[in-house]
């Protein structure tokens, strides 16, 4: 799946035919290949999600985006599916708040709150569904990790695969191989930044960054001197081709400044244009 495939209201493969469907009575059009979740969002219907990210392949782990789908010819029979992975179909009727959808979502949130009783994101989502306190046994060792696997998936997506979910069942966790400093990690922070509960610790200090127990040497911006990227990250992306190593000489802020300066210069040179004062 390509990046940004699901972005925007005109979701789906470019050039695919348009499909009409209805979400909670609102009709909406999406491109063929889009999922029900995108159709709902295009229709302005809110469906909660925790493991979904528009840049990544749908995962189906959090189960919060459950919806009922049906078709007029099904004679009232409904199918319970998850919106992030069910492909939109012409004429599909989507119901996002049937009794069983609401109830199942509540059970899932209740269970998640038991796992993460102190996590603000989970508390807030549970509260919005009428759950103040979990009815199950609260985790005696509270964690903020909701196991949405966004971190491992973004790491895979970048072609790094330094971390993964390990172990089964309740013992599942995100970890580097053998729990040791991951040899493939480039310290890019994609995992930490995508984490919806910010529970992946890292530290960037003068000249070095530490994440997953691995310390990286930083590359400084040749202009402002800020340590902006790890040497390993610059090497990785430059080594993969497409991005020259020189791209990492400037930090993002300085790159923007330079680009702005270039625009100003160009526009001054062009007749009839003036930028700013």
């Amino acid at each position: 799946m390509s990046l940004g495939k699901e972005m925007g209201t005109q979701a789906g493969e470019k050039g695919g035919r348009m499909l009409s469907l209805s979400v909670d009575g609102k009709s909406v059009q999406v491109r063929e290949g889009a999922f029900v979740l995108e159709a709902a969002r295009a229709a302005g219907v809110e469906i909660p999600t925790l493991c979904h990210h528009p840049a990544l392949e749908p995962y189906g782990g959090c189960r919060l985006c459950l919806v009922d789908v049906t078709r007029p010819e099904w004679g009232g029979w409904c199918k319970l599916v998850i919106a992030c992975q069910f492909p939109a179909e012409e004429g599909l009727l989507v119901h996002t708040a049937t009794e069983r959808v609401v109830e199942t979502r509540r059970v899932v949130l209740d269970l998640l709150l038991a796992r993460c009783p102190e996590t603000p994101l989970v508390q807030e989502l549970a509260r919005r569904h009428g759950i103040e306190q979990t009815s199950y046994v609260a985790n005696p060792e509270p964690t903020d990790c909701i196991l949405c696997a966004l971190c491992t998936r973004v790491c895979d997506h970048l072609g790094i695969s330094a971390i993964a979910t390990v172990n089964r069942g309740i013992g599942r966790e995100v970890a580097p191989p053998w729990g040791e400093a991951p040899p493939d990690c480039i310290g890019c922070l994609a995992c930490a930044e995508i984490c919806p509960t910010s529970c992946i610790p890292y530290e960037t200090s003068e000249g070095s960054r530490t994440i997953w127990g691995k310390t990286f040497e930083m590359l400084r911006c040749t202009r402002c001197g800020r340590a902006h990227v790890t040497v390993a990250e610059a090497d990785f992306f430059a080594g993969r081709g497409g991005v020259p190593r020189s791209y990492f000489e400037l930090c993002d802020a300085c790159k923007r400044k330079e680009m702005a300066a270039t625009f100003v210069k160009l526009s001054r040179g062009a007749a009839g244009f003036s930028v700013g004062a």
Partner: peptide, 15 residues
Amino acid sequence: ESCGKCIPCREGLHQ
């Protein structure tokens, strides 16, 4: 034996 990927199975079985 639950793989632990989805919440209802992982947390539900545990509870």
